[in-house]
Amino acid sequence: MVERQRADARRNYERILAVAEEEVAARGADASLEQIARVAGVGSATVRRHFPTRRALLEAVSQHRIEALCARARELDARKGDDGDDDSGKGDGRKGDGREALLEWLGDVVAYCVTARGLAAALSYDEGHDPVGGNSCAAALIEAGEPLLRGAAREGAVTPKVTVEDLITLAVGLALATEHHPDPTARADALLGLAVAGISPERD
């Protein structure tokens, strides 16, 4: 009986998550929990048992996108290393590899936040928590992005005191600020260019 209950609960979870992904894709962070329950064929209490808050649901819906961005960070860091960079910062890699890798990843994060509805909200401020550090999605991105930031810092390519949390907050802000623009991707990309000039000005 216990195993059957667990199996039923797992099926409910998977069904709710599948419906939630569709609803968030259609309506963004404002997707209705009640509508998700109706489409999934379960009660609202069941939805809230699995996802007690809207943030919890958005984090679950965004999980595979977060995993993709984390994998991208690892790929860029490994590629930089293949070019000859090392922990001493004295490798034979091309000048600017660390900066290029960090900014390429940041561009990916911004692009995902702009195009993947609900992701920016999953990474944004939450009442009662510190900025970006109070949820699992942000924590995973912070951990993944740290090696890229360290690589750029070893080159002297980022201004002092910049953190991965700052970069994620920037990505979220750009996505939320441009979500109603006629061309949000292009606008966010242009604004990112302005921000990068302050975060990591190009050197002669």
Score class of each variant (00 low, 15 high):
A120S: 14
L57E: 10
L123K: 09
L57A: 12
W105G: 09
D85H: 07
D108G: 09
R65F: 03
A140N: 03
G145R: 00
D77H: 14
L119Y: 10
A101P: 07
T115L: 12
S124T: 06
A116K: 10
C137I: 01
D83P: 01
D83S: 11
A116P: 03
V132Y: 02
G91A: 04
A78S: 13
S124C: 10
G128Q: 07
H129Y: 11
D130R: 13
R49P: 02
Y125T: 05
C70Y: 03
L76D: 01
V110G: 01
L69P: 03
A139K: 14
E143G: 00
C113V: 05
L57P: 11
A122M: 14
A68M: 08
L102S: 09
R94Q: 04
S124W: 09
A116N: 09
E127T: 13
F51N: 11
L69N: 06
G93V: 01
Y112T: 03
T115W: 04
Y125I: 05
A60P: 11
P52N: 07
F51M: 08
A71V: 06
L141N: 07
A73D: 06
G118L: 04
G96F: 11
G91H: 01
D77S: 15
A78M: 06
R74N: 12
D77E: 15
A140L: 06
H64P: 10
D85G: 04
S62T: 10
G145P: 04
L148K: 02
K90G: 02
D87C: 04
H64S: 15
F51V: 01
A138H: 05
D83V: 06
A139I: 08
A68I: 05
G134I: 05
E59V: 13
D86P: 08
A120I: 15
A60H: 11
G84V: 01
G96A: 14
L76Y: 01
D130Y: 14
N135K: 07
G151C: 13
A138R: 06
T115C: 07
G93M: 03
D86F: 05
V110M: 12
D97K: 09
A111V: 04
A111N: 08
S124H: 08
H50S: 13
L148F: 08
C137E: 07
A78C: 05
A144N: 12
R154Q: 15
L102A: 09
A152G: 03
L106K: 06
D92L: 07
N135T: 00
L76S: 04
G151N: 15
A101D: 03
L141C: 05
I142V: 11
R65P: 01
S136A: 06
A138G: 10
A68E: 14
L106M: 12
F51H: 10
G96S: 09
V61W: 02
K95T: 05
V109L: 15
N135I: 00
A144V: 11
E127M: 09
T115I: 04
G96C: 09
R117G: 05
L148E: 00
L102C: 12
S88R: 11
G81W: 00
G84H: 00
L123H: 05
L148R: 01
A140M: 13
H64D: 15
D126I: 09
A68V: 09
L119E: 15
A144Q: 10
A73L: 11
R49V: 00
L103C: 06
G96M: 12
R55W: 13
H129G: 01
V61E: 14
Y112E: 15
A140I: 00
